[in-house]
Every structure is written in C-alpha cells, then in structure tokens.
Design a protein around this nucleic acid. Sequence first.
DNA 1: GGTCAAAGCTTGAGTTACTGAAGCACTCGG
DNA 2: CCGAGTGCTTCAGTAACTCAAGCTTTGACC
Lengths: 152, 152
Amino acid sequence: MGSTSTTTVPTNAELMEALAAVGAAYFQDFAAAAARHGLSSSQAKALGAVQEPVPMRALAGRLGCDASNVTGIVDRLESLGLANREAAAGDRRVKIVVITDEGREILNRIRGEMSRTHQAFEAMTDEQRVALHSICAQVLPVLAGRTGGVQQ
Amino acid sequence: MGSTSTTTVPTNAELMEALAAVGAAYFQDFAAAAARHGLSSSQAKALGAVQEPVPMRALAGRLGCDASNVTGIVDRLESLGLANREAAAGDRRVKIVVITDEGREILNRIRGEMSRTHQAFEAMTDEQRVALHSICAQVLPVLAGRTGGVQQ
DNA sequence: GGTCAAAGCTTGAGTTACTGAAGCACTCGG
DNA sequence: CCGAGTGCTTCAGTAACTCAAGCTTTGACC
C-alpha cells in the first residue's frame, strides 16, 4: 500500500478489482429496485433488452443464455402483462417479444428508483461523467466481443 | 442526438446505459472463464470473496444474498476442494470459509483467462486507466451504500 | 414438386441459485 | 440458570439455467 497520492497507473489486477466491485454494486442496486416491483433481476434485465422488439433467439444472445431459458422468462413477463409474443412477418417460426406500455412504465420506474446509482452519478463532476462515458463507449465493443468489423 | 464531437456531458440515462452494458459484458466474460473451469458464476464470485477468510454470514453480505443460500454454494466449493469451513476461535457458532491453494490457483487462472477484459484494458491509455480507477474508487462507497461513516 | 438439412421455439429432466420459515447450537446479559 | 439474540443449516418452493429431444417452418437441392 505505497500511498503516493500522485497519479500512479493502476495494474490490470487493480482495475479488474475496481471494475468488478462497481459492477457488482450497480447490479445489486438494479436487482433491489426490480425486486420492489416484483421482478427478478433476470426478468428486469430481459425487459430492458426488449425496449425494441426482439426475436426470442436474439434475446437469448443479448442475455447470454440458452434459448430454452428465455422461454420461461418471457412466459413470466407475459403473464405479468409486461411483454407479448408476436408473430414475425415473413417467418412463421419466429416469435418477436414486444414490451407493453405497462412494461415500459415499470422499466422506467425501476431505473428511476436506482437511488444509489443516481447518488453515485451526482457525486461525479462533469469531467468525470464525460470521461466515464467515453471510456465505456470505447471499451464496450472490445469487451462485448465485437472486435474487428465482422458484426452480426 | 446533436452529434457535436465536442465534449457534451452525458445524461444520467446515457451513463446508466453505458455502465450497464459494460457491467454486463464484464460479467459474461467472467462467467465464461469460470465455466471453463467447471464453476458457476455464483461459485466463482464466492471464491473471489473469500481470498481473505470470511465467516459465512459476512460472505452472505458480500454476495448480497440470504445466508441460507451461502450454505449450498460453499458446500459445492468444499466438495470441489476449493474452500474449507473452519471453526472460529472464540465463537463456536461461527464457521469461517477459507480458500484452499487449489481454489486460489483456479481463481487466478480464471482472472487470467478473462481475455476480453484484458483486451479492453489494453485498449486504454494510461490516462484512461487512471481516470477509470479513480472514478471507481470514488463512486464505490456511494454505490455500495457505505455513505456517511458508519462502516463497522 | 418432393425431400432433407437446418433454424426457431418449446418441452422435459436435472442441477443450481435463491428466498422465507423453522430448527439447532451457541453466546451473552441478566 | 434462563431467555433473548446470533450464526448456521435444513426444508419447502420457485426461478434460472443447461442439454437433449421434439415440433413447425424454411430453404436449398435434386
């Protein structure tokens, strides 16, 4: 712990630790807000992933899990009235998940109630916000595996 | 979307979206690396939380879940030989989870194999690393709910 | 046009994660 | 000693997740 207060560049391990801690704390804030509205974190995450209509299979890709798993999650969202399955024009195999108005409202409410996250943002300067946002934007394609340009 | 390339300060919603995307991508990289070693993400997360010996109850706090849940997770880690339960000196109710040498090795291997994350770090400048690390450090106490100073 | 591989979704079996309530073992204050 | 409280486990019960198998539909190939 050599506490030089000058700007020493953090090691990868330190960065990873910091990122993991922030990611975990963010996720807990998210899960807690979702739970207040009777949603599990998986359901809320799925709801956030269908702000645009998305076929089941693509949703599985976004959530990083098996397609068979998505069936159950969407079943529950549907029974809660937060999303619907619609037939795809042109391919009758495909079912497209569409968020309902109520689903969109709950989603917005959840995001608005993530108080720790909002507090964290308020604790940041404008420069920090700009820096964080630009770092995220730059790093996301790499982190999400969309390197090069062979998209899709 | 006025795309002025000058530094416009992102809204809270934009920041939240960016943070969520990066957090999710990081987590998937982590889960994939853990899966390659036969661990679920919960198990790997728990393993990372016991680099220092931790009582069961405190571990539940770190993982943000019920204590009864931790019983099962540690059961599985123990049966894999990655952690052990030890009696606490001074209070025979308490069981302390201690990582084994093998557990530590697997943990290090998992962290080393998070290739997307490492790629992402390599894509950052020193200034960006410093900025990201300092933002995380500043924001974490707020985000994790340790405001004020009632630390315990 | 018929056939067949492949794609998209669901179902079923089986494991893990998670919660809440109840239970046991232990501690600590009276 | 007794009783309240703490720490861990056990027991239902649900959700999340995976893999394999099944069904429908599509599209290519003969």
